[in-house]
Write a protein that binds this DNA or RNA. Structure first.
Lengths: 345, 345
DNA sequence: GCTTAGCACTCAACCTCGACGAGTGCTAAT
DNA sequence: ATTAGCACTCGTCGAGGTTGAGTGCTAAGC
């Protein structure tokens, strides 16, 4: 997506002013009110510039006698070239920090807290995915007898992520046998990911059929865990959409909330996000989802330790304060990264 | 809460018809349209009866020249005396059953599925609490070394509820020591709840300071788990509120969503629910929360095994189809109970 | 005495109309 | 190239009028 039309100094300044004004008030902005802020030029001059900005597609007129509103492309130009990011105000920091003061040891609980914190900080819907690595490594495992045909596998993964799954017992085994198998497996398996484990069976299989059998099931479950990680998305702050005038239309609201509650629709979007750039902003239709054509996403990566990273960000109206939201998302991302990193120990 | 005014046969029939009509259409219902269904009497007669029903508080007129709408009290009378519960249609069953066809082994995952299923079945916001007993019993525990000063406690509770928590190590201990302690504790602790465990320390304390120390921390954490269970509430289906005309007003919607997202406000309400009656219906202001004055709650208990029970239900407009919602909530409750019971093994 | 036809009355919803004004585009003067 | 000036557009707002659904009351009928 290129910006075909470069803008001269003055047009840039005017576009920037339009975005700022519209973001603040939510009302289409006219030449007169711009002339107050940009006292260098008269309203007529600004009017001419507005006309050309409309022609090249950066601004839109809701109707003939209305002011201008930035188009998706206009916001894009603003975000890429004009925006001055604002520092995160102390007040917002004071609001966010307490969330991370006392932390649970489980990664998921931390993420839930992060979602709440970010929803508050950015006044939008927050989205958080679990940290993922190429393959999650096992830290510890345990087997608990459920009944004659089933045992419960308890996997402690890196990041104190705990996963459980019922496994089938192909032969009889009581808890002492299971515990023995578990400690046997622990010796071999700790530190491996699904891929690493799949290279084990031959050597382990010697000992016992049951053991090999369980290992096969464990590997299968690990693979499922890997896959799940990509789709798990927490969210919070739907309430923050409601007081925005552009969502006074319930139709629109409904579409957006549906997308947020159907987590897997967002999963596709977020996994498509380019995580290597510091922060990614998708404006309006750029997301490719019709339901979100009036919404923007501001996403970033949080890093927990050397390799593990997850996505965190917000979903809000296209008319959001990008200059504020970006830094706030980054701020929370940094906190989460640190917190999750600590949980990884 | 008594019903001071008993109604004669005809008034009952009319009230019932008003509720049925209003539930269906959402429009205040007038004497003329009632006279079609209740052909026994003319519209004038019905008009007289409507007037007295309004006087005693069962009906409300939005304005002078409008039809009647049931008041909270009117719904209450309907629900208590007039409602004929409808069977759960096969179509709805076919919609719900697949959710319970393939089940994860963890209770919380099951509950999440249940929340989604109920939201679909009842076309409202679903609410689900974790099953609680007087005290949750331990099934298995494990200790995983995190670093020199901390170990991760992994508790498997009844119902395959897995909880993890970092514990402080008062002395040095590597993983083999921790595993030994864990298996030692397992022998003593399995099947006990927090209360039962608090009677242990004297006898266990002999062996090692570290062991006693950990046990103390474990007991403390168990108590926390007990408390958390009461407040954990899952929800789904906020989207279902949006297509209801009474929530066209965004103000109202905002209040309701805020309550739903702030789970702890609901926790108080739900724990106050009288779970021993088959199904509990709270209509409008009966809930005591001003924000929910236009909403009703339909709650019931699901039983998993002999003693454990949780709450499941829906939050919707007071104008919901009580005759349909009640049975559907019970239907899902029964499925959840069975599923959770199975997970309890 | 209960029921009901008839009728005057009320009032929200809806439409129309005109005034208003915010904002534009164009033109001509600087 | 800039800008003052002006005619023009069109959405918003409020006043005024119409409509129709629904009522309450009264008086007649069974």
């Amino acid at each position: 997506m290129q910006h075909p039309v470069p803008l001269d100094q003055r047009k840039q300044q005017i576009l920037k002013a339009v975005v700022a004004d519209y973001t603040r008030t939510g009302v289409p902005v006219g030449s007169a009110s711009l002339a107050v802020h940009l006292a260098t030029w008269s309203s007529a001059t600004i009017r001419n510039e507005l006309a050309t900005l409309s022609e090249v597609g950066y601004l839109i007129q809701p109707h003939t006698s209305a002011g201008r509103v930035p188009s998706d492309l206009g916001y894009r130009y603003y975000v890429d070239f004009l925006m001055d990011e604002e520092d995160v105000p102390a007040a917002v920091r004071r609001q966010v920090d307490p969330f991370f003061a006392v932390l649970p040891s489980g990664v998921e609980d931390i993420l839930e807290i992060a979602a709440t914190a970010l929803a508050h900080a950015a006044d939008a819907v927050s989205l958080v995915t679990a940290p993922r690595a190429l393959g999650v490594r096992v830290k510890h495992l345990d087997l608990v007898k459920l009944n004659d045909t089933q045992a419960l596998l308890v996997l402690v993964l890196e990041g104190n992520l705990v996963r459980q799954q019922a496994l089938n017992l192909t032969g009889p085994a009581d808890q002492t046998v299971l515990s023995a198998i578990a400690s046997g497996l622990n010796a071999v398996v700790v530190g491996l990911n699904a891929a690493g484990m799949s290279r084990l069976p031959e050597s382990v299989g010697k000992h016992a059929v049951l053991e090999r059998d369980l290992l096969t099931q464990i590997i299968a479950f690990m693979t499922v865990c890997d896959a799940q990680q990509d789709t798990l998305i927490l969210h919070d702050g739907v309430r923050n959409l409601l007081h925005q005038p552009e969502f006074g239309d319930v139709e629109l609201l409904q579409q957006v909330i549906e997308v947020v509650e159907e987590e897997r629709m967002l999963a596709a979007l977020i996994s498509a996000a380019d995580l290597d750039h510091g922060i990614q902003i998708m404006i309006g239709r750029e997301s490719g989802m019709a339901e979100l054509s009036r919404c923007s996403l501001v996403l970033t990566t949080y890093r927990a330790g050397a390799e593990r990273r997850g996505t965190i960000g917000v979903l809000g109206s296209t008319r959001m304060a990008y200059a504020q939201v970006g830094p706030r998302v980054r701020y929370v991302a940094q906190r989460v990264g640190r917190a999750v990193g600590r949980a990884l120990s």
